[in-house]
Design a protein around this nucleic acid. Sequence first.
RNA 1: UGCCCGAUGGUGUAACGGUAGCACUACAGUUUUUGGUACUGUCUGUCGGGGUUCGAAUCCCUGUCGGGUAACCA
Length: 548
Amino acid sequence: MEEERSLNFIEQIIEQDLASGKHTGIYTRFPPEPNGYLHIGHAKAICLNFGLGEQYNGKVNLRFDDTNPTAEKQEYVDAIKENITWLGFKWEKELHTSDHFQQLYEYAVQLINQGDAYVCEQSAEEMAKSKGTPTEPGQNSPFRDRCVEENLELFEKMKNGEVDEGAMTLRAKIDMAHSNMHMRDPLMYRIINERHHRTGSDWVIYPIYDFAHGVSDAIEGITHSICTLEFEVHRPLYEWFNNKINTPAKPQQIEMARLNISNAVTSKRKVKKLIDEGVVFGWDDPRLTTLAGIRRRGVPAQAIRDLAEGIGVSKRNSITEMSRLDYYTRQVLNKTANRVMAVLDPLKVTITNFDEGKVEMCEAKNNPEDESAGTRDMPISRNLYIEKADFMEDAPKKFFRLTNGKEVRFKHGYYITCNEVLKDAQGNITELLCTYDPTTKGGWSDDGRKIKGTIHWVSAEHALKAKVNLYEGLFNSENPEEGGKDFMEDVNPNSLEVIEAFVEPSVKDLAPGTTVQFDRTGYFCVDKDSTPNNIIFNRTVTLRDKKK
RNA sequence: UGCCCGAUGGUGUAACGGUAGCACUACAGUUUUUGGUACUGUCUGUCGGGGUUCGAAUCCCUGUCGGGUAACCA
């Protein structure tokens, strides 16, 4: 009954903490900075934190880490919430680090009173210089030994806007000779004269990540604070602050490897360049691995969650193959996407023994994997289209599609035989003259005839024209930036091909965002800009194809 | 160069001193009104060198390789 599954290292920590009584329940958080759009890497963190919450009946806060008003915007806050909701998660509380500004300030004052923090008047350059190097210790700031009263007074001035930006900072007094550079009297507060998207002009002093993040975790009662590997060297600082302050809880920071996907880039800077240089059309371009892009391409949220679950959690940096996302996408869509017939590269077929003007309806299952999806009626008539690739003259025996003289099944329609091939002056095939067997309606016969080939088709007069975006990987290399290469050089020039296809009439009413399977071709999503008179599909992923 | 982390098939992960397993990919085959799906099978792996032990992917030493880290960013 219970499926045997090994625990990842974070689950092991949690179960130990629960078993030992260190915690009676778990509380995690997802802490994005609202300065950009979420991508597939964030999705892993979201699924992990919220997934752990569901798994252990714990709570998960959504906390916007908004300590730097120069980059953060409400627009991003809204988009991030939308993405998380799309993924299907609910947060316990929506919080912002800025909600804790007053509390953080009071803790800072406490540290000053304890002699653990001081106001420093060194410039950024002086500070960098006196910080030392990995092999040489730093020099103490000349302001390091100010008395508590003076520190208090100066910090108050900073807070009240009486000090110029850059003129003073608040620093933790730790150890300028520490082997971990982050412990050499790190900044706690700096002055930024910029309007904050939530606190407006209430504050001009803003806490630095190292001080704000861990202490906010503690304030919120977070038990397990999961972050990525690059914060590993920050952990001693994280713990230093929470140990110096009498915070109500002592959260544990746990670092894990971020998710990297092959043939893609995720960093804001790089995606922005792709947009600015016109390689892609925006943050939600379906070729990007932003959540907005992936969603627009038609990938279901469940596939992202399955991916996050499937790749596991570890501390070693890795690149997950894109084929893995494709796998989960197909897996979900196979069960949920209705089938539809669409011809992407048309070849005219005339059924010579089908009366001119006659229209018959063919009943078609919407999804062979889901009986409850029902059926629809598709019109068939004398003039049809099939895929060019589904016909070949003098085909080899392994060719299971249409060829001269051999019967194939037109799916949901009839057995068809090709009798004559029409060509233009250059010898290109322009049309096929075929006949149908009227006794095989639906694609069946009870005389034991074995029809190996089944192909899709649409009725020429009933088909709708649709614009179809065929996407391929945006980059040629697994790792577009490997070896200091310029990732722009690695862009796949064929990442988008726009074609006009013929689709069966039933798609007319599909809502934007709906993903269907084009029979034998792939999964396609109705674009958000699609309308009944201007139908647009985005190829989500092709079907697996074992042909040759 | 200091400090920190990591190294298991092509890829992602298990095995916590006792038969190296699972999934993706690739390749075969069966089924099939999608060359889809489903099912079955095959290929490929413990970074090197020492040690501890009856026994090491696992523990110890050492080397090599990879990543992170020295923002008034997060």
